[in-house]
Amino acid sequence: MTSMPKFPSVAVCIPTYNQAQYLIQSVSSACCQTYPNVEVWVSDDGSTDETPQVMEQLCQQFPQVRYYRQPKNLGIAGNNTWLMSQPKTDFIVRLDSDDALMPNYVEKLVSLLQKYPEAGYAHTAIQEIDEHGKNHAIARVVRKKEFQNSDEALMAAVSGYRVAANIIMFRTKALQELRYYENRPEYVEDYDLSVRIADAGYGNVYADEVLAKYRVWTDVKKTRSKRKHLQLRGYIRIFEESFLPAFQRRGWDVKVLDKQRRKMAIINSAYCFLPIFNQEERAELVALLKQLGDSPLLRLRIVALSLGFAPFFEWQLHTEIKLKGFVKDWLSKLKSMSLVKAVG
């Protein structure tokens, strides 16, 4: 068995679609890493803005950049599958074109993946920024161990995608085994991949250090909310095609999956009653909610939402999310203080 070289090769893969205004920061952050062996790939999924002109300038500025413009729009999963299957490197970073890496991101995560050869991917704490680049909250994953084995990761994933943000360094071998996002759900393809990686026997490693910037932008046109049907269909596929077979292979009780499906249906119900949806769209979303996790409580919630209680349930959900973020940050700071005292 040959040992990995001192500086394994890394490709930063940046899928993009109509985000020309953020590309300079994103691509530059990938090109200006402290790590010496990085190539940068950008796949433009048929953008209609100034992306080609911006990329022409960036290719002249940074010789390690490889830019490809798709002749037709492939969608999120299709574009990512094409892009991430191109490099022949040891590791692959997925970086969305409105996000950015800290200069030592690659160096730190290559070191962690070398330390834990059983890990299929590595992830970190992140700095949230808005559409103007202004810093907001720091997002972290609260867990006790740096490395999480495959069974632990699989069970943890039942409650959701267990990363601070979808800025990930993958072991290329793991991606190749699973054929990337090929024929997988659109819009929640990242969550689905994490489940399949755990099912394949790979753990993951987490650095509780802010090593990337994740853009949380105001969706004025409600574009993301309009994709709710894709999200719900994706969740259904993840539980039926990824989680269920994985649990059955291990002889695990699948009741926990049914319980989580019902919980997710209730959590997502308020979004389906936003005024941006017409009557036909709402009927489709309600049917998908019931397919995801039907229950008497969901049906009661749907009645309440149809009577105009959506703003209250949305406020309740946002409050819970903010409270969880506060607790995570507080626990992480407490952990850091304990480590400092231990070293002292």
Rank of each mutant, 00 (worst) to 15 (best):
H132W: 06
P103N: 08
L109E: 03
S194L: 09
F243W: 01
K173M: 14
L300A: 15
G203N: 09
F147K: 05
Y187Q: 08
R162K: 12
R282T: 13
K255C: 11
S225K: 06
T48F: 03
A20K: 13
S43K: 08
P245Q: 04
K335H: 14
F91P: 13
C31I: 06
V256T: 14
A246F: 03
M1N: 10
A137R: 12
D192R: 04
E152Q: 15
Y35Q: 04
V158R: 13
L178A: 08
A270R: 05
K259R: 09
A246H: 09
L23S: 14
C272S: 14
P8I: 01
D90Y: 15
F309W: 08
T34R: 10
N183M: 02
L211K: 04
S9Y: 04
K328Q: 08
E281D: 11
K134Q: 12
E314W: 04
S26G: 05
N80L: 11
V110Y: 00
V54I: 15
L178P: 00
P36S: 10
D199L: 00
T89I: 07
C59M: 15
V220G: 07
A153C: 01
A20I: 09
D44F: 03
A270I: 00
N278E: 06
F239N: 06
A212T: 02
T51F: 02
L300D: 14
G201V: 06
I236P: 10
Q64W: 09
F91Q: 05
L113P: 06
T51A: 11
D49I: 00
G46S: 15
L101V: 01
R227Y: 07
F326I: 07
V38F: 01
A265E: 03
R140H: 14
R69N: 10
V10R: 07
L154M: 09
P245C: 02
R249D: 12
A270S: 13
E209G: 02
A156W: 11
A283H: 12
A77E: 04
K226N: 15
F247T: 03
A122L: 00
N104S: 14
G251L: 11
L232R: 04
V42C: 12
G308T: 08
R237I: 00
E177T: 09
A157P: 04
V54Y: 06
A198Q: 03
L112C: 07
D98S: 01
S242M: 03
K259H: 12
V158F: 09
P8S: 00
K290N: 11
V254G: 05
F7W: 12
K290R: 14
L58D: 09
K145M: 02
D45G: 13
K72A: 15
Q64D: 04
N268Q: 10
F239I: 05
R143F: 08
I168Q: 06
A270E: 09
V65M: 08
L331I: 12
N18W: 01
L95P: 02
R250Q: 11
T51Q: 12
L307G: 07
K6F: 00
